[in-house]
Amino acid sequence: MAFVGVVDLTAGPGVGLLPLVSLGPAFAGLVGGWRRTALVGLIASVLCVGLGVYNGLFEGRRGLIALLTVAGVTAAGVVAAVMRQRRERELANVRSIAEVAQRVLLRPVPRGAGPLRIAVSYTSAVAEAQIGGDLYEVVTSPAGVRIIVGDVQGKGLEAVESAAVVLGAFREAAHDEPDLTAVGERLERALNRHLSGERFVTAVLAEIGDGPKATLLNFGHPAPLVVRPSGAVGYAEPPERAMPLGLAVLGSAAPLPYEVPFAPGDQLLLYTDGVTEARDAVDRFYPLDERAGLLKDPDPEAALRAVREDLVEHAEGPLHDDAAMLLVRYRMAHSDEER
């Protein structure tokens, strides 16, 4: 609007830019509220009248047409701003309800279980009302501590509903079944009764008992990260890739359990693909293994918080997918931390 005014004053009325003053309320309606749009429209009208009188445009029809253009665009901008704000409020309400439903499912995990210390981090994506279906749970069973971290295909309330099925089945099976393979079979049966079409759930199950090892069962999920006290870092890859939960109808073989050493001082980080698939400005994925040094903090919750902050900094803004992380730390014997 200022540019149009300067050009009109310096070049004269012959340039014919006066109707472009209406761009002010037009853009205000796209990004601001209706009050701001109306205020900008009022300023545009005053500017239009002032320039029209200065240039003598109201002696003909040019000044009146320019003023009517500003008034019409302002009215349309106010209506558009009101409708946009109403839609934003509705989306905020839907997202709030969905997040509450998801938080009810994701109960707080125990901070400790025997020699294990456990911490969880969950970062919700900012994408209108489309929350994801990331899930996690920790259950203390007769066989040891059993853990699940998973990711439901899709987003929204439908994904939360699928996550509820998985978590409900896991909480029962983790107590009742003798091994992880049987737990996985229970989850598969529960999902087959619930899911339709080609929807699926990737998940990794872990069991940590009395021995210096962890047993894992991976259903097409990103491999957990293992961090040793020496600083060595590696992914606990399964011997063979398996299909996600819910796709047993395709006739694929079930995953086989495998063991990884897990002794005092070791850390096991389970996560969803929202962590490793977060991209920076040049489209690079988040290098989780290179950031393992952030897990050195004696407090596991502070360690996960450092990783989460680094993840958001890597993405240079809000994440486009939900990101869940669950850290299991085997406490050193007779350490200050244990005391």
Rank of each mutant, 00 (worst) to 15 (best):
H314V: 03
E237Q: 15
T140M: 09
G72Q: 12
G41H: 05
E161H: 10
F58L: 07
R89F: 13
R62T: 12
L295K: 05
E185S: 11
T74E: 08
G24M: 01
V152M: 00
A28S: 12
R241P: 09
L247F: 13
A315E: 05
G60C: 08
E59L: 11
G184P: 02
Q153P: 00
Y235D: 12
L319Y: 02
R305N: 15
D280R: 07
L167K: 06
E177Y: 00
V227D: 00
T140E: 15
H194Q: 09
D321W: 05
G133A: 09
D210T: 12
E90P: 07
A125P: 05
V275Q: 02
I208E: 02
A333V: 14
L20F: 15
A75I: 08
W34E: 07
Q102L: 15
L288G: 01
G317K: 10
L327D: 02
A292Y: 03
D299P: 07
A263V: 00
Y235P: 02
G56H: 13
A164P: 02
A169N: 03
V73W: 02
Q267V: 05
T123D: 13
Y136I: 03
P19N: 13
R291A: 09
C48L: 11
G14N: 11
P115E: 08
P115N: 06
V94I: 14
R111Y: 01
T276G: 06
C48D: 12
N192T: 11
L269N: 01
L135M: 14
R89G: 13
R117P: 01
A223L: 08
A174H: 02
L17S: 11
D266Q: 04
G77K: 01
R279M: 13
V4S: 05
P287Q: 10
A232F: 13
H334D: 15
C48Y: 03
A2R: 06
G12S: 09
E59W: 07
C48R: 03
P222M: 05
A101G: 14
L268C: 06
L167N: 06
A203C: 12
K155Q: 13
V139E: 01
V312A: 14
S335Y: 10
V233H: 00
A80P: 04
V249F: 15
G52Y: 03
E338Q: 11
G144C: 12
S196M: 14
R199C: 03
G60H: 08
P318T: 08
H175I: 12
P178D: 13
A92M: 08
L105E: 02
R308K: 13
L64F: 14
L250R: 14
S162K: 05
G50W: 09
P244I: 02
L304H: 03
D134E: 12
V183D: 01
S335E: 10
R291V: 07
M325P: 05
R95C: 04
A38G: 14
L216K: 01
P224F: 09
A206V: 04
R193H: 11
V31N: 00
F262V: 04
F219D: 02
G197P: 10
M243D: 04
F285H: 02
A236P: 01
E309C: 00
V82A: 10
G211W: 10
G317E: 10
V73P: 02
